[in-house]
């Protein structure tokens, strides 16, 4: 299809581009092995400092609570949402009302995260002033993170269900499975890869996010990205920040690769298609 000469040219351009994509990340790792003050060479000094940095660990714990807590809730909401829209929406419904669910689902995806974050900031602020509930902190962050994850989970589950043979549902009906039974014994097992994929996607989105977290956080809910951002703003990039960044990059790359190679055999095409639709 592609002539040999062009293939060589493509390789010649692309491999350096791949290298360029990872150069900044590699540089973060390289600088994290900076020596202790007044010493030369490379060392694990920064990691040692990090190990005794209580604030960093507190931030890590909050980030994990935020990511896992929001992903569990959004997986539940999103799975039901994707399932309901795929199965129970009347195909010949017309008008604004029929498009409303799609409009609602795509809003969090399309909305610039800055507008998203500031809307939440104002909303939580007003609600707190009026009722005393929802003061800015980890709970408001979790609510915001659930909000941006739900559509992605719903789309993942929907894509999986829409790709199924519709006669599967008829077969379940013919065998007298009621709604709940067919949900538990047919839908859940069939959609399971999409649910797991949606959950992992939710965690990834949560860990990736800075902007929305930044505007919904309170003084007592500094998570890792906010911690790093604050440290850079105050005193620039330090070896400790690089060490922390290296650990974060390493973790997410490892998780992604493990996820890729596990799902590759089971459901490669489906997983990739689902993710492709989303990003």
């Amino acid at each position: 299809m592609i002539p040999r000469g062009v293939r060589y040219a493509l390789s010649g351009i692309s491999w350096p581009l791949y290298a360029l994509l990872y150069t900044p990340l590699a540089l973060v790792a390289y600088y994290s092995f900076a020596p202790a003050p007044n010493e030369a060479g490379h060392s694990l000094h920064a990691y040692n400092v990090l190990l005794h940095d209580g604030a960093a660990f507190t931030a890590l714990r909050r980030s994990l609570i935020l990511a896992i807590g929001s992903a569990i809730t959004s997986t539940a909401l999103g799975t039901l949402l994707g399932y309901g829209l795929c199965r129970f929406r009347s195909p010949n419904a017309k008008g604004v009302l029929a498009h409303l669910p799609s409009l609602i689902i795509y809003t969090p995806i399309i909305m610039p995260s800055l507008v998203f974050g500031i809307s939440e900031l104002i909303f939580f602020n007003l609600v707190h002033n009026a009722t005393g509930f929802l003061s800015a902190g980890l709970e408001t962050m979790i609510i915001a993170h659930i909000t941006f994850q739900v559509p992605y989970v719903a789309l993942t589950v929907y894509a999986r269900l829409a790709g199924l043979d519709p006669y599967l549902f008829d077969a379940a009906n013919d065998l007298y499975a009621n709604g709940l039974k067919s949900f538990l014994y047919l839908i859940i097992p069939v959609v399971q890869p999409a649910i797991i994929g949606g959950f992992l996607l939710g965690i990834t989105l949560s860990i990736d996010d800075f902007t929305i977290s930044f505007f919904t956080a309170g003084p007592g809910s500094v998570t890792l990205p906010i911690y790093i951002y604050g440290a850079i703003a105050r005193k620039g990039i330090s070896p400790e920040i690089n060490a922390l960044g290296t650990l974060m990059i390493g973790t997410i790359i490892t998780l992604a690769l493990v996820h890729f190679f596990i799902t590759r055999h089971r459901d490669r095409a489906g997983q990739f298609a689902a993710r492709g639709n989303i990003t």
Binding site: L21, P24, L25, L27, V28, D208, I249, I252, I253, T279
Partner: peptide, 20 residues
């Protein structure tokens, strides 16, 4: 995957990396 992977790291980390 290797093209998409850097974008899954945190926004702040992958941005300040360019500062270095």
């Amino acid at each position: 995957l290797f093209i998409v992977l850097p974008s899954w790291t945190n926004q702040v980390v992958r941005t300040y990396a360019w500062l270095e």
